[in-house]
Computed example of a mutant assay.
Amino acid sequence: MTVKELENKAKEIRRGILTMIYESEAGHIGGALSCCDILTALFYQIMNTDPGKPKDPDRDRFVLSKGHCVEGYYNILADKGYIRKEELKTFSQFQTRLIGHPNREIPGVEMNTGALGHGLSSACGMAKAGKMQKKDYRVYCLMGDGEQAEGSIWEAAMFASNYRLDNLYAILDRNTLQISGPTEQVMKLEPLKDKWQAFGFEVEQVDGNDMDKVLKAFDRLQKVNGKPKLILADTVKGKGISFMENNVKWHHGTLNQAEYEQALRELGKPDKGGEA
């Protein structure tokens, strides 16, 4: 897919996120919107996966460590054919599979996530297993910045560096806001790039809402051998919606009809010339 096609796909997924949260009256909308470009780049361009063979032993693995921002993930799985699109309407409803965090009942989901700080450790285990089995698959783990305060993140980082897991790609959705406020007020994290480099990671810091830059960052990291990698993605919480952007209120929130209609207007439809 071209960069324009990927940008249009991300716009389509964002519209799906809005509709899912509006109709279900539940969801973590701000973080789902901030990481949408990264998820789109991964699932439509970078990762080696096949919806027809979700358990292929040679598939790339993806772990959504920030499991509360699952709405974009579900929309992508439906768009790619892992689940039926009609099932998206059951999100957060009684007896649904599509609960507010990923779970392994759903094809394409590698592990249950939601307890923050656990995803990277599991991704390290998958990457280490791949090395032991002499497999070529890669493991991608998307983290939130709020969970960087968890000690388990840094234990996993030491493990990854110690075992030279160059098949591990961590991505940090750095939107600077968590449920209780700005990360630098809740628990100071900076200098994050220096910290991850000190833990032995090759780090690329990039605008995480710029599709072209995200793709180029992954391309550069794929050329690095002998050490784990991290994309430090500077993003905007609530990206694409004026009244949500950089507003901690929209970490978790639902839309009324007027807000929903305004958000759809602001987001717009994919450009016809590059629609995927």
Rank of each mutant, 00 (worst) to 15 (best):
D37L: 06
T176S: 11
M158F: 10
G30D: 08
S161G: 08
Q257M: 10
L39N: 09
M211G: 06
A198R: 14
A26D: 02
P107D: 02
M47C: 05
M158H: 07
A115S: 15
C35L: 08
Q185L: 13
I83K: 02
N167A: 06
Q262V: 10
K134P: 00
Q133K: 15
G27W: 00
F218S: 12
H118M: 10
L6E: 02
A10E: 15
C124T: 09
M20W: 07
R59F: 02
F159V: 13
N247T: 05
G16I: 04
D173N: 15
N103H: 03
G30H: 00
D210V: 00
K237C: 12
S34A: 14
I106V: 13
Y137M: 08
G208S: 03
C69M: 12
P51H: 05
I83E: 09
N167H: 08
Y140M: 09
I46Q: 02
H252G: 14
R61Q: 01
D234G: 00
L64Y: 02
Y140R: 03
A149L: 03
G151E: 07
K229Q: 07
Q185Y: 08
H28C: 01
S34K: 00
G67F: 02
C35E: 03
V203L: 07
S122L: 14
D271S: 11
I179N: 05
L232F: 15
R15V: 03
L42V: 09
V63F: 01
F199Y: 14
K272N: 12
E7N: 02
R174A: 15
K216C: 04
A157Q: 04
T183P: 04
L33F: 05
R14P: 05
I76F: 07
L168C: 13
R59D: 00
Y82C: 12
K9G: 00
P107R: 05
Q262W: 04
V3D: 01
L88G: 03
